[in-house]
Design a protein around this nucleic acid. Sequence first.
DNA 1: GTCTATACGTGGATAGAC
DNA 2: GTCTATCCACGTATAGAC
Lengths: 194, 194
Amino acid sequence: MARTAGSHSDITGPRVRAAALRLFARDGYAAVSMRAIAGEVGVQAGALYNYTPDKQSLLYDLMRGHMDNLLAEMPKGKGTSLDQLRDFVMFHIQFHADRPDEVFIAYMELRNLSPENFTAIEALRRRYEDHLEAILRDGMAQGVFDVADTKIATLAVIAMLTGVNTWFSAGGRLSLDEVTAQYWDMVRKAVGVL
Amino acid sequence: MARTAGSHSDITGPRVRAAALRLFARDGYAAVSMRAIAGEVGVQAGALYNYTPDKQSLLYDLMRGHMDNLLAEMPKGKGTSLDQLRDFVMFHIQFHADRPDEVFIAYMELRNLSPENFTAIEALRRRYEDHLEAILRDGMAQGVFDVADTKIATLAVIAMLTGVNTWFSAGGRLSLDEVTAQYWDMVRKAVGVL
DNA sequence: GTCTATACGTGGATAGAC
DNA sequence: GTCTATCCACGTATAGAC
């Protein structure tokens, strides 16, 4: 049946977050006004405050949700160290390619988080890195990998993989599968597997 | 002899750029006001307009100067392809480690450039990438390197190397020389050199 | 060259009617 | 739940005195 006129809580909330995501990614958090977000949704600025206590919470919720998804979906350890590394590389590229706006915000808007929110997001990012480093450490212990320092190798691999998002386009010269295969080849060699 | 009272054009100009560099890197272009820059220099906001036509030019001049330095100082082709790649890796890490603020701005504030300014900076960045790709292509032609696609390898290597700036600290566990040696080892292997 | 003063727009957030 | 109206702080940039 028809709802009370003007009652759209369940649909407007997600639309507010979607608009904030899109505009933050396109123009940057600092350059996006609450009025602009409201305009994108089709309401007045004051109405946004039914869905978020303030602009900062909007940013934090987007980044928090993104990091939670990342940690929830990352592959858990199955198979050999080499299998796990390959799964990680493939997951990372696919997950990030699927969410360019979230990824862009997660990297570019860290400095616009309040100190407490920054600490929380950093802890999640650190857990993701630790997961990859554990894979590299296991492989080292088994003599499968050969890197001088697992922490540095972790950061190097993640930086290299995340870089795909700065240039990849679905309609470009190479498909994402081809790109992924090439990155996997480079990562594999970089950690000392022929 | 004593200059006219209040005449500091030759010293204030560089101080304005230094203040803008520092504050843009710390807080982001959009979050830094002309008043804040003036406060850092020790003048009133209106006085800044003796040194820059507007805030946008301040950003562009910083990025432009950085890219010009990068291109002027990058190693020109000497020695074997492997030598040139090693020189490039070492140069990139050292150059970027020496200028964390400039590098941060050059990557984070691209979207705050006007369209014309963005095009100009992009062209310079592209020239830098092309230099590395030429090294990789030469090495491929000589059978020294083994990568599936030189353009992708170029972007992967640069992303990996630039990532150092996000975590390296001079007082940390490893010296920059140790870090550089490890990155060179990974890059060398990644492009197929045992 | 720098200052004070100001024009003028826009920001986040809130109050109260409907 | 959304609207209009508004508060008040702050933004860039300029004008004119010194």
